[in-house]
Design a protein around this nucleic acid. Structure first.
Lengths: 194, 194
DNA sequence: AAGCTATTAGGACAATCATCCTAATAGACG
DNA sequence: CGTCTATTAGGATGATTGTCCTAATAGCTT
């Protein structure tokens, strides 16, 4: 098999396992078993566990960048783009209720481990923050753009954590409705005065 | 030394280490070293790591129950009580920015580990949920009480996660102002119609 | 077909972990 | 003072971990 393909399989499996079980709780053997290759083969592609982690982070980052680029194309209105972000908690509801937010839980875990790749993982969080900030700027929020971006980001993390902990189906939908109402109010306030 | 005192020291040290480093990343040796006792002595008090975890959960639960009982006494207005809950993210801001929310991060970790004590840890989360629900009921929110309680709980988890990840000082204060404004609006809407 | 390189397999290694056991000690009580 | 029990110390153990090494294989080039 081509090395590229095997490497890709490893990263995909690690991505999934790091999400569902956590980084520290996932062993070399776990990933190798998921891809059905030997640990020796594994070592050929990745020398250390941290290398796999960095590869997974890069993959997640690239995935999210693609997602944001798609939203930039499909939705012309910045409010609609923010709505796309908000609705991912519904689209991924099942997974979120089982394992939380892939971004937030990884950053939290790495921070507690004092892991060197914490800042690296945080790039995904700041990617969303910066993209959201840009959308609120385009909406005409001015200096409040960053504040509003962090508000939405914080909202998503809270919903993910509580959804995972308490597992209330209706809760997620209600929270989405709430934040969408807030977004509409922000949109009207922002576009009116200018 | 009295067995009670040693046991208490172990639980206190484990509580701190589970919070700052995580449950899985904390070893028997780590806790024993923090208390300056031998692993053998350790085993006399706790047979398994899960026993320590359960003891830590009980301690945290008791601590929070005491905290809520104090708020019940010091604040007569339910809105003021909810405000007490909201302000803990400021009171504990330094720790939260370093290690996140003690309750949320533990539940998240245990869920990913598939640990048997996940439900047990979740009792702390539902303790807050139920207490908040009671306050919103007393505020006159009726059927919306639970919904509002989950909203505040979700808010606190989101703030903790983003504060830990991005570490913006002003962010926490702004979010507290925001949610207090929301709380005031809820209070006025709830008390007026009835 | 032959040879070379990229890829894979599988075992060895030391370190760390939770757990368990036995011996030493201390503190209370007769 | 002496005995008994509660408490502590510290090492042994088997399992698991990340990491590393060497040999086998497959796929491409000539």
């Amino acid at each position: 098999m081509a090395a590229r393909a095997t490497r890709q399989q490893i990263v995909d499996a690690a991505d999934d396992l790091f999400y569902t079980r956590g980084f520290a709780a996932t062993s070399f053997a776990d990933i190798a078993a998921a891809v059905s290759i030997s640990r020796g083969n594994f070592y050929y592609h990745f020398k250390t566990k941290d290398e796999i982690l960095d590869a997974v982070i890069e993959k997640r980052l690239a995935d999210r960048e693609r997602l944001l680029a798609r939203w930039n194309e499909t939705a012309t209105d910045p409010a609609r783009r923010i709505e796309c972000f908000i609705r991912i908690v519904i689209a991924n509801q099942t997974k979120i209720m089982a394992h939380g937010c892939p971004v937030g839980t990884l950053v939290t875990e790495l921070t507690k481990l004092g892991h060197a790749s914490t800042d690296n993982a945080n790039r995904i969080m700041t990617l969303f923050r910066d993209w959201l900030t840009r959308q609120f700027e385009d909406l005409g929020c001015g200096t409040a753009a960053l504040e509003n971006a962090l508000h939405v980001l914080s909202w998503s993390q809270g919903v993910a954590t509580v959804a995972q902990a308490i597992g209330d189906d209706a809760f997620v939908r209600r929270e989405v409705d709430r934040i969408l109402q807030w977004l509409e109010a922000v949109r009207q306030n922002a576009t009116r005065p200018h």
